[in-house]
Amino acid sequence: MKILVCISNVPDTTTKIRFNAEKTEFDKTGVQWIINPWDELALTRALELKEGSGGAVECVDVASVNLIDAEPTIRKALAIGADKAFRVNAMPKDAYFVAGQLAEVVKSGGYDLVLCGIESSDYNGSAVGGMLAEFMDYNSVSAVSGINLDGGKITINREIDGGKEVLNISAPLVAVVQKGIAIDPRIPNMRGIMMARQKPLTVSEPTGIDALTSFETYELPAPKAACKMIDPENVKQLIDLLHNEAKAI
């Protein structure tokens, strides 16, 4: 079995988000980039599957649609333990575009199992995994919180409303994974960090598929309202504010 993990390059989760003056573009100045946390968990689980497969999992590779400045993030995935990396040299314009580009990597590599994080922590679109399955005509399961391999059989755990379900499904498969798929993302060791530059990172140009959407403007959420302290004796003022200002009652 060959596993591909799709990797997004996202701003560190503590980044202070800013846009340009026209609010049409994200300001990347001083931003530290990381592997999308869900993708990092997916990679960790993929490596666990390979290590526990007794050789049945031939490789765990990673793919990303991004420009060259995403390569440190991709190399971190190699340091963590991925065997090979693929980068489609294009800005990730929208989910359709990204899924279309990733489909070319999946086709050319003949991957049986593709893992995608449920969403990227920047745009939160939650669309690439499903679209990729459609492009490939692969089976697809979303909100996967557990995945195990037993010979040719793939067992999936999913969180559903009010409980969990267990599914058996066959490859080829796109599994869209969420929290729970692995306990913690794996930390790269020294040897992995040293080896990362020696592992193959193949760069390809995008295919003809183009984006279906484009960004018009961005807007930051409204700042949090200040907290008002009310004397516990002053119930009248509390009711007045809840009614007239917060309009909660």
Partner: peptide, 18 residues
């Protein structure tokens, strides 16, 4: 270098997480 930053992050992750 990229490797130096990766080592720094690995140490930070282990310290802050474990």
């Amino acid at each position: 270098s990229e490797e130096q930053l990766m080592i720094q992050q690995a140490a930070r992750d282990y310290a802050q997480r474990e």
